[in-house]
């Protein structure tokens, strides 16, 4: 439960920093090793429900696969065109395969990092913490929370609008033009009712004395303690160590082509 109890802002910043660092890596092994590390954290430390995890994670395999073959099919001119391997009857430069693998692994690693964050963080606490630790203005923080509250209502309304329109005798759209038109027909009532809700909510909030001023007290107080900094240091150390190791062994690459 250690990861669940971390300060949400620090957790988010750690994820963002890791992603930024990984963006510079173009070899396949470094992101893969880091991916394994995140999986270990997710399964053994955060103890996330594996079934749920796989459900969320599976689309990224498709995504990564798409990335892989696009990279091979549309790769830039390799620097060493002589080193090739044979794959599905085609000769492909090793370099292209490495880049392709690297970018696919990168997608999987990004996804694992994000899921580690999403599955261990209460999003409301995340916003409250952004306000308390990262100086997010209260007007934005509570405005976002108020808007986010509409989510279930909007979902229900979309279903209602769909059946209400069916009763009016609207048929399934066939052409692109009909599709765009239909999209507009759904979205305008949804937006209109959300805007009215937003106005009413704003009035209710202000009538409870909300001014957007930073001078307010907090029922739920978020703090940053040693354990939060330790988490950030640990994550970044692992990543930097992996990159350094890769560098020393000699398989590390960052972007070496031309922009």
């Amino acid at each position: 439960m250690y990861i669940h109890n971390l300060n949400p802002s620090i957790k988010a910043i750690t994820v963002i920093l890791s992603v930024l660092l990984l963006t510079m890596v173009f070899d396949p092994i470094t992101p893969f090793l880091f991916l394994v590390w995140i999986w270990i954290l997710t399964i053994f430390v955060a103890k996330v429900n594996i079934k749920k995890y796989l459900l969320y994670f599976s689309p990224f395999f498709i995504f990564a696969a798409g990335m892989f073959w696009t990279n091979i099919a549309f790769a830039n001119e390799p620097i060493n065109p002589t080193e090739v391997v044979s794959l599905f009857g085609n000769t492909i430069p090793i370099e292209d395969i490495q880049t392709a693998l690297s970018l696919s692994h990168r997608i999987l690693t990004f996804a694992s990092l994000s899921l580690l964050f999403l599955l261990t963080t209460n999003v409301v606490h995340f916003i409250l913490s952004l306000m308390q630790q990262c100086k997010l203005p209260p007007k934005l923080a509570y405005g976002i929370l108020a808007g986010y509250r509409f989510l279930p209502m909007i979902k229900d309304e979309l279903v209602l609008i769909k059946s209400a329109h069916r009763v009016r005798g609207i048929n399934r759209a066939k052409t692109l033009k009909e599709n765009v038109h239909q999209y507009k027909r759904f979205i305008v009532p949804l937006l209109a009712s959300s805007i009215r809700k937003a106005e009413r909510t704003a009035i209710a909030m202000e009538s409870k004395g909300f001014t957007g001023s930073r001078e307010r007290t907090f029922y739920r107080q978020f703090t940053v303690t040693t354990k939060d900094w330790l988490f950030m240091i640990m994550m970044l150390t692992v990543l930097v160590t992996l990159i350094t190791l890769a560098w020393q062994i000699g398989y590390f690459r960052w972007y070496t082509g031309e922009i």
Binding site: K139, G143, I144, G147, I154, I195, T201, A202
Partner: peptide
């Protein structure tokens, strides 16, 4: 205005 912020958030949700 607060309502402008909430409207933007609501539009994003929609």
């Amino acid at each position: 205005r607060l309502k402008e912020v909430i409207v933007m958030a609501a539009l994003s949700v929609v």
